[in-house]
C-alpha cells in the first residue's frame, strides 16, 4: 500500500486575536491556530513566511513578523496591496483566516551570533526583520550592537512605532528618515542611504540585513559596498508572486532559483549569481 501523503496545500483555520494598526496602509494581525494543540506546537524561524487564505481570494505569501522566541501567536504585518490584503484589512478581532506554513529558508541566525547587526528597511520591509530584531533582543547576550535604519514616505507613514519605541528603550540604535517632512517632524529627511552616511560601523564585525523596495535596495547596496561591506555580509529577503509556497508551481522563479524554497532569504553574494530585476534595474 502506498504510504499516506501529507496534504501540504490544506490551510488550517486561525483566529485573529488582535489587530495592531501600524499606519493607514499597514496592520499587524496577531493570529493563533484554532486547533490549540497545533498552535502550541507551531514553530517557525525568522525570515520564513505563511501562505494566507482569505475567503474567495485565494492565497498570498506573507512574511512572519513575530519572533520564534515568543511562541503561541503568529504576527503577520500586511500592507494593503491587492485583493487579498485589502480583504485582510477588513478583518476584525475574532474573525478566522486560513494559514499554511511556515515556508522558506530563514535568516541564518547562528551565523549572526556575536555580530553587530545593521538593519536597513523601508516601509513594509521592516516586517520580516521585526522577528529577527525581537529575537536578538530576547537573546541579547548572543549578539553585538543592534542598529535599525528605517525609511518611510512621511512621518504619518512610519509603521511599527510601538516596536521602535520599545527597541530604543532596550538599547537599539534606531534612526528614522522620511522622504517628505510634515509639520512637527524634526527628524531626518531623505533616503535611508543618508542615514548610512552618519554611521561608523565596525564593518568586519557586522552583517547587514536589508529589506525594502527595489529602488531603495539598489541604493543601499551601493552605499554598503562603498562602506566596505562584502556581498557575503549583506542579507535580504525577496518578494515574489507565489502560488504553492513549496517550490513546485514556479511563479516565484528567479533565474533558476525559487524565492519560496531557495529563499526568500538570500545573501547578496547569492543574488549576484542571478539575473534579477532587483539588481539589474
Amino acid at each position: 500500500m502506498p504510504q499516506p501523503i501529507t496534504d501540504i496545500y490544506l490551510p488550517r483555520q486561525a483566529k485573529v486575536e488582535q489587530i495592531i494598526v501600524e499606519n493607514s496602509q499597514i496592520s499587524t494581525f496577531v493570529l493563533a491556530f484554532s486547533d490549540h494543540t497545533y498552535n502550541n506546537a507551531f514553530r517557525h524561524q525568522p525570515g520564513q513566511f505563511m501562505m494566507v487564505s482569505m475567503p474567495h481570494c485565494g492565497e498570498a505569501p506573507i512574511s512572519i513578523s513575530s519572533t520564534p522566541t515568543r511562541p503561541g501567536a503568529i504576527h503577520l504585518s500586511v500592507r494593503r496591496a491587492g485583493k487579498l490584503t485589502a480583504a485582510m484589512h477588513g478583518l476584525r478581532t475574532g474573525d478566522t483566516i486560513g494559514l499554511r506554513g511556515p515556508y522558506g529558508r530563514p535568516f541564518p541566525m547562528e551565523q549572526l551570533q556575536k555580530k553587530d547587526l545593521l538593519f536597513v528597511a523601508g516601509g513594509i520591509g521592516l516586517a520580516p526583520l521585526r522577528g529577527v530584531i525581537n529575537g536578538c533582543l530576547d537573546q541579547r547576550d548572543q549578539f553585538g550592537t543592534l542598529t535599525v535604519l528605517y525609511g518611510s514616505r512621511t512621518p504619518s507613514d512610519i509603521a511599527f512605532q510601538s516596536d521602535l519605541g520599545l527597541w530604543k528603550k532596550q538599547g537599539v540604535d534606531c534612526r528614522l528618515t522620511v522622504d517628505a517632512a510634515e509639520p512637527g517632524w524634526d527628524g531626518a529627511v531623505g533616503l535611508v542611504t543618508s542615514l548610512l552616511d552618519d554611521l561608523k560601523p565596525n564593518v568586519n564585525q557586522s552583517t547587514t540585513l536589508v529589506c525594502g523596495p527595489p529602488l531603495m535596495f539598489r541604493a543601499v547596496l551601493g552605499r554598503l559596498a562603498s562602506m566596505g561591506f562584502s556581498d557575503h555580509q549583506v542579507l535580504t529577503t525577496m518578494e515574489r508572486h507565489m502560488k504553492c509556497g513549496v517550490g513546485i508551481c514556479r511563479h516565484c522563479h528567479m533565474d533558476g532559483k525559487m524565492a519560496c524554497a531557495d529563499g526568500p532569504v538570500f545573501s547578496l553574494a547569492e543574488l549576484r549569481q542571478l539575473k534579477i530585476m532587483e539588481l539589474d534595474g
Binding site: A81, G82, H241, H251, M277, E278
Partner: peptide
C-alpha cells in the same frame, strides 16, 4: 510562465 501575469504581484509590480 510565458503569460504576462505569471509573475505579477499584488498592486501590479512585476519583477519579470
Amino acid at each position: 510562465c510565458t503569460f504576462a501575469g505569471f509573475t505579477a504581484m499584488a498592486g501590479g509590480h512585476n519583477p519579470v
